[in-house]
Amino acid sequence: MYHCISNNDNTYLTIKPELLEKQINWLKENNFKTITVDQLVSHIENKTKIPEKSIMLIFDDNYYKSIKYNVIPLLEENGYTAILSLITSGIVEKKSNNEFSYEELIIWENKNLVDVQSHTVTSPLHPNMTEICDKELKYELKESKKILEKKLNKKILGLIWPGGSYNQKTINTAKEAGYKALFTVYETGIITNLDKIGRMQVTKETTFEDFILKIDKFYENKLFCVDTSDQILEVYKNGKKKKTYHVGVGKKIDEKTCTPIGEYTIGFKLFDPIKNQKETPYSKDKNNMFGPVYMGLFNIDGTNTSLGIHGTSDSLEYLLNKDERFISQGCIRLKNKDILKLCTNVEVGDKVIIKD
């Protein structure tokens, strides 16, 4: 995520044109491909393919000269598309020397140089969408989408929250308005949830080495995604799905037995848990219900959930062969051979997303 690209501005969100050029050249040399918001939505919703090393170059706010003179030439040279997160109140009709115009944006869109998305109507006046009234919120989201769709003759699916601020109310309002991809400013790693898309922020304090390390770190990240409806656990590495396991999840009786939806981390790994019962929530278990491995799930704030990903007792493993596997008290159960394979790829701190 970028803002201003300029040699004449020394603010925190500004970087020098030569640094941007160096970053984009590195991306090109390392076979990264840019994708648009439509491509991302289609990939998440319909499983359509995107390049293995996909990246989104997003430029926030209406820094017209920054884009025209320091970004567009780099995009043309490298065959890249940038996402422009624009405030509609700052766009004029005809070409201008100082402002974005729909006339010029259409030319850039037709050349696949830019993918314009919404940054609301007047975001400098309302930097925090969570603090304005419902009427203003609906106006900011619906009106900007309506204007961009009419002027550019395209569907606007992406909304970039001003300042990155959002809550469940703003998410619901955005989805009601027809947005599908909602971007914040926080880094979240691999994208599995279109409601909360994180971004890596590039500022004047981001060195070229920092940039490379952040990109490399993301592509080294592992993610474990549990789908409680399909009763599967998917392993992602380098942004790609590598393995799928059939799992047992919580009985859908009440909140106490359902597997809770949310984002977690692996808090600890415990081998032969029957001998280390203090670490698990069922200290009196005598039937080795956890199998050979128990991996505890922690909340993002580091607190223990008392839930885990684990194997199962020999007498209950047959339940994991059934079509419906709502069999646990909230934990995620795997066959013992599967948990032994899975645990070799899991480290403390790895991210786990549980969805319905």
Rank of each mutant, 00 (worst) to 15 (best):
D272P: 04
L233I: 08
G164T: 06
W108K: 02
I232S: 12
P292Q: 09
D350R: 03
F290Q: 11
Y166C: 05
L13S: 15
M56Y: 01
C4I: 08
V71H: 01
V226Q: 00
I91F: 04
T257R: 09
L148E: 01
T88A: 08
G308P: 01
T280Q: 02
C258R: 13
H3A: 05
L105W: 00
I332Y: 04
N112T: 08
D356R: 11
K111F: 03
E21N: 15
T228P: 09
L157C: 09
N153L: 12
V352H: 00
T122P: 00
P273W: 04
Q117F: 03
I261G: 10
L40W: 10
K49Y: 12
D350P: 03
K337Y: 14
K145N: 04
K146A: 06
I91A: 02
E99M: 13
N110V: 07
I232L: 08
S6K: 10
N30P: 12
I197D: 05
V37G: 07
W26C: 00
T34I: 01
K355Y: 14
I107L: 13
L213T: 13
I55M: 08
L27I: 04
T11G: 08
W108Y: 12
A174C: 08
K222I: 06
D115W: 05
G189E: 06
K16E: 14
I50K: 06
F59W: 06
P281N: 07
V37H: 01
L75C: 09
D38E: 08
Q277S: 14
I91D: 00
W161M: 07
Y245D: 00
G267E: 06
G164S: 02
K175Y: 06
W161K: 07
F268N: 15
D272L: 11
E234R: 15
N30D: 08
V116Y: 00
I147P: 01
I354E: 03
M295Y: 08
G164N: 05
G311K: 00
K240G: 07
T207G: 10
I190Q: 09
F224V: 10
I83P: 00
K243Y: 02
K16R: 15
H246F: 15
V121M: 03
I24W: 12
F211A: 04
